[in-house]
């Protein structure tokens, strides 16, 4: 009923292997070379940090989670996020009907050291469209205040 379309399959096998070899070679020279493979592509839990003058914003893609299954902790400038995914194929009856299963992971936990001290009391987190956004206010000492020093 369904079959996967792979644009590379339009190439002949020889050309395809050459194409892959060429991509691998470029990747070695440039780590940012755009080589995208399906199973390297999963975005679950890949944290994106944005530094602003007065706050740090962390964004985590956590598709298929529920609010009550996500926990966010900050301890000594270490941010820890734990999440559990709602899995539709836990029971054996559904497992037998699976014809393709790529979303393997069910639980996620990650801790990172924050690049600046934050005020945990002023931290907010919200989850929408499968993305957890954590806004952490920097402590007063960390804010980039410009000081003008007079010259005598």
């Amino acid at each position: 009923m369904l079959s996967k379309i792979n644009r590379k399959s339009e190439l002949s096998p020889n050309l395809r292997s050459f194409d892959e070899m060429f991509n691998n070679m470029l990747k070695q020279f440039d780590p940012f070379y755009n080589l995208e493979l399906p199973f390297e592509n999963h975005s679950f839990g890949r944290m994106e940090l944005e530094m602003k003058d007065d706050e740090i914003i962390a964004k985590l893609p956590l598709p298929g989670c529920k609010n009550d299954k996500i926990s966010v902790e900050i301890e000594n400038d270490i941010l820890t996020v734990k999440a559990e995914k709602h899995c539709c194929c836990k029971n054996d009856e559904v497992k037998n009907k699976l014809i393709r299963h790529e979303r393997h992971y069910q639980a996620f936990e990650e801790s990172i050291k924050l690049p600046a001290a934050v005020d945990s009391k002023k931290t907010t987190a919200h989850y929408k469209h499968g993305v957890l956004t954590i806004k952490m206010a920097k402590t007063a000492a960390e804010k980039n205040e410009v000081r003008i020093i007079e010259i005598n």
């Binding site: 995208e36 399906p38 592509n41 975005s43 539709c88 194929c89 699976l98 014809i99 790529e102 979303r103």
Partner: peptide, 8 residues
């Protein structure tokens, strides 16, 4: 990016 998929 290719999105991951489950098919039942």
């Amino acid at each position: 990016i290719l999105p991951l998929v489950d098919i039942i």
